[in-house]
Nucleic acid binder design. Structure first.
Lengths: 236, 236
DNA sequence: ATCCGTCTGTGCGCCAACACACATAGCAAC
DNA sequence: GTTGCTATGTGTGTTGGCGCACAGACGGAT
């Protein structure tokens, strides 16, 4: 994490939707940062000093098990915010936050966040609605983990990432995807090969390209649509 | 749902921990209700007119799939509250709430809830901290669904239920447990038989008795402890 | 006492995902 | 080029859970 590469206009959708007065109160406290792929922003149970509003980066929430296994429970892009525990009152959470796609974010010190949250204005309402959307995503992940195949889950994961990305290309090895989905690397290889054979994606050594988004949406389980619709409903 | 069988003292832990003044403001709006086993309190996506504070009942949050399959994402007992969407701002949620154990609850009309929530006092803080605890539970369910065996998950489910119960006996058929866990009925039969052979539980036709709670805790995966510790930390 | 519906036990074949082992194929640096 | 590292492909055997089919067992109602 270092100084932001770009100081361009804020592109986090929670922030851009704030009324002018509220945004102006927050703006002076916003600090641009940029993230590298794989960077750990929060450690499980660790101290959280800032809340992060991704703009071009994508953040993954991972649960780690004692035996080293891991599984992703949710993804955060420029529609959301990382660090809900800071306004929910818990201070910390028992999961890790990892950068899934390098890029920028704006961050806010915990105290500044809490002061603005306590004003009970649009900012508070936006954060709470977003939190509810995130709960839906986590819930659907739970169900999908139980009931659907690796291939369907890979589709879901690709679409969730693509939704939060400018480009059609993801930088991500099958090994890392396997960690996220909580499955074996070979399982991802197999599923990815099938998607490639059907012309939905192509990949070479950590570079995945979405070729046929409509095809992916046809192959994915209902979980993706449920979450997307709920995000649309709650975040407009 | 009908009039409450008992009008005894409030036993919901979110309510009992409120300072006197706040509780007195809420008390006149609290209405006792009682639930029968299997009753559906909220339908997925349906209108929510009240928020419910279980006292002796246990509520299950279920996601339903298009093909009729279902899976539980969380359990609510007297430590919590059903209907977080009413203060999170989303009005509704895409899951069903079902009574897992018959008993009583207190309910509050949505408007009364929102008025008190907007005062930004202890009540608001308690509700938000509880919501964070629930998020942890849902997250851990997601991970457990991916990584652990039916037997471990059955242990987790039994312990979560037992924690929210006065007695050592659960009224619940294996068929229903299977719906909750999102597995086959035979899978539950098999796992339950093993637990019975090890003397941890006994069951006959929908009556499950916890015989050796310590043994169950030894057989369960870490997921149970992580969630319990997080509940203790947040709701202490 | 009998009947009937519900709950639980069990067997069988099947398949997805697993664990482990190793083979190839890109890319990069020298 | 050659070397070396990382990413991906593939084979073999195992296993946990699924789907289906049906058998037994208990308990309440007549």
């Amino acid at each position: 994490m270092g100084p932001a590469v770009s100081h361009g206009p804020v592109k986090n959708r929670l922030l851009t939707k704030l009324p002018g007065a509220e945004y102006e109160r927050i703006r002076p406290h916003l600090e641009p940062v940029s993230f590298k792929l794989g960077e750990v922003i929060y450690e499980s149970g660790g101290q959280m000093s800032h809340i992060y509003f991704p703009t071009t980066s994508i953040i993954s929430l991972l649960y780690l098990m004692e035996n080293g296994a891991s599984a992703e429970i949710g993804v955060i892009g420029n529609e959301g915010v990382l660090g809900i525990a800071l306004f929910m009152g818990g201070e910390t959470v028992p999961n890790r936050a990892v950068v899934q796609s390098a890029g920028a974010a704006s961050r806010l010190k915990a105290e500044a966040l809490q002061i603005e949250f306590a004003r009970s204005g649009t900012f508070q309402r936006a954060l709470l609605r977003y939190t509810q959307a995130l709960i839906s995503q986590i819930s659907q992940t739970a169900v999908c983990n139980r009931l659907h195949s690796v291939e369907q889950q890979l589709c879901r994961w690709l679409l969730l990432s693509h939704d939060r990305l400018e480009s059609d290309e993801l930088i991500m090895t099958q090994e890392l995807i396997a960690n996220m989905l909580g499955v074996r690397r070979e399982g991802v290889t197999h599923a990815a090969r099938r998607l490639q054979e059907h012309g939905l994606i192509s990949y070479v050594r950590g570079h995945i390209k979405i070729l046929d988004r409509a095809g992916l949406e046809a192959a994915v389980c209902e979980c993706y649509r449920v979450v997307r619709d709920e995000y649309d409903r709650l975040l407009g």
